[in-house]
């Protein structure tokens, strides 16, 4: 009895999973932009992030996929959740408000941007490189980070440091002012 999946089925399975990921991503993005309650919007964002992580996996980069989960889901989404908890005690009231003119305008703008980008992408002639100099594995990413892109790496660390300091200062200053 051959219980292995026949090689013919594999691409179909693969496409199926890929489509699933795309649907998850789009569903998450829709939820993130349309949900009335902010917490659900964040949930949509998380779902979207997870879907994108899956898409990265299809782009031969499990490392970035996991980093996507670690950073976006584990840090960014939690930060946003925190912001909601701290700043939106009455989210029900918030939900009742509907955007006036912004609605149709937003649809138009979003649609236009998507259309422009997508059509450009579809019609453009992309040059496929003749040869790949490496496989983009984790080791190679690490090596690049510490050789060719070490300057950017350092800059990013400075950006992060400044971001932490800046957010501390901003949040702290508000507190002092509120108390006195």
């Amino acid at each position: 009895m051959n219980l292995s999946i026949s090689p013919d089925v594999v691409p179909i399975l693969r496409e199926g999973i890929f489509l699933g990921m795309v649907i998850v991503t789009v569903f998450g993005a829709l939820l993130a932009t349309l949900a009335k309650r902010m917490t659900r919007a964040v949930l949509g964002l998380i779902v979207c992030f997870l879907g994108i992580a899956g898409i990265y996996y299809f782009l031969n980069s499990p490392f970035v996929a996991l980093m996507q989960i670690l950073i976006y889901v584990g840090a960014v989404a939690i930060t946003i959740c925190f912001a909601i908890m701290l700043a939106e005690p009455d989210e029900m009231k918030m939900a009742a408000k509907t955007p006036g003119l912004a609605g149709p305008f937003a649809v138009l703008l979003g649609g236009a941007v998507t259309w422009v980008l997508a059509s450009t992408a579809m019609h453009a002639q992309w040059m496929t490189p003749a040869v790949k100099i490496n496989e983009g594995s984790v080791q190679q990413v690490g090596a690049s980070l510490l050789t060719m892109y070490s300057m950017v790496f350092e800059l990013v660390s400075i950006v992060l440091l400044l971001a932490i300091l800046g957010s501390l200062v901003v949040a702290r200053a508000g507190r002092d002012k509120a108390e006195c």
Binding site: V22, T25, V26, A29, L30, A32, T33, M38, C48, I52, I55, I80, A83, I84, A87, E88, M94, K97, P99, A102, G103, F105, A106, V107, L109, G110, G111, V113, T114, W115, L117, A118, A121, M122
Partner: peptide, 22 residues
């Protein structure tokens, strides 16, 4: 590319539509 464009479009749509900072 299409997925990327769609996400970007959703982002722009949300940026304009959402009334709150978060």
């Amino acid at each position: 590319l299409f997925i990327g464009a769609m996400l970007f479009g959703f982002g722009v749509f949300g940026l304009v539509r959402r009334p709150s900072l978060i």
